[in-house]
């Protein structure tokens, strides 16, 4: 296995372009090392992106949005007060990944590129309308986060392409987001179901909404029907029921060691309602 520490994304792309066999990029490394140790994937080339200038930065953009470097750890994200105040759902999703120790290393970019349908940070990003800059041999492109995952362990990135930054749109006024997941224990588990909702209000009424679900399909899904059930409502009981029905209908889970189809569908409805209430309260400024 060859280990590289490029100083620029251009160099990283060049190394990847000439590498033989299996190439992996190291942002936080928490997934790559587990796969290496378990003998699931032993890369021939490992490209460590953490030394590229700027990858540890969280930058406020002119339009009020944010750019988050690919090597920003969960712990660093959680300590950024302004980001937490605007996008608590995005941050709480990332902060649920693994233990305190894992938070010291794990990154949004790594969690996204690992391609797990149960990745805790991805629904929050999808609900937020986050995008990523992708650099590669054929230049740079921007993709919506929901267009990155393809299936368990696979993404729509082309060979040699690297996620170079994550962008959150401006939060604007009267907005709120939230992420909840269900796990059997209190910590350390992979999500059995995850749900993120971001919404904005016009008075008491929901003006815009995005609903994302994790661990109930081969990839994290954006559920337009669930969002539609919220828009124009004050999150009354009828709206919550419609949200639950839409979310449950969109869920296409499997039975595995972490949960059954029936359980995952039931919990999808429960989490959708609970998440929506938190996001709504946050948008109204009634909750942190």
């Amino acid at each position: 296995m060859h280990y590289h520490k490029p100083q620029t994304f251009e160099d990283a792309i060049k190394i990847a372009a000439t590498a033989q066999g299996v190439t992996r990029f190291l942002a936080g490394g928490t997934d790559v090392l587990v796969q290496l140790r378990a003998g699931i994937v032993t890369p021939d080339t490992l490209i460590d992106l953490k030394l590229i200038p700027g990858v540890r930065d969280i930058v406020r953009e002119a339009d009020g949005g944010w750019t988050i470097g690919i090597a920003v750890s969960g712990a660093e994200l959680g300590r950024h007060a302004a980001l937490v105040a605007e996008w608590p759902g995005v941050v709480e999703g990332m902060n649920l990944v693994g233990s305190t120790q894992v938070q010291g290393r794990a990154t949004l970019a790594g969690n996204l590129c690992n391609g797990s349908p149960a990745a805790d940070s991805v629904p929050g990003l999808v609900a937020a309308g986050a995008t990523v800059s992708v650099v590669g041999p054929n230049g740079t492109r921007k993709l919506a986060v929901e267009n990155i995952p393809a299936s368990p362990g696979r993404t729509h990135l082309q060979p040699g392409e690297i996620v170079a930054a994550i962008h959150l749109p401006p939060r604007g006024v009267n907005g709120g987001d939230a992420y909840l997941r269900f796990i059997p224990r209190t910590e350390m588990d992979i999500a059995v179901v995850g749900c993120a909702i971001s919404l904005t209000l016009d008075g008491d009424k929901i003006a815009t909404a995005r609903v994302a679900l994790g661990a109930v399909a081969p990839k994290v899904i954006l559920v337009a029907e669930a969002a539609a059930a919220l828009i124009g409502t004050t999150l009354d009981d009828h709206a919550v029921s419609a949200l639950q029905a839409a979310a449950t209908a969109a869920a296409q889970p499997i039975t595995d060691r972490r949960g059954t189809v029936e359980f995952r569908k039931d919990v999808t409805a429960v989490l959708a309602a609970r998440t929506a209430r938190i996001a709504y309260a946050r948008a109204k400024g009634e909750a942190k």
Binding site: R185, T186, E187, M188, D189, D256
Partner: peptide
């Protein structure tokens, strides 16, 4: 199917 501590779920301190 669950030959790792991630999925062989022994109690953690916060439980």
């Amino acid at each position: 199917q669950n030959a790792v501590f991630l999925d062989y779920r022994i109690p953690v301190a916060s439980d």
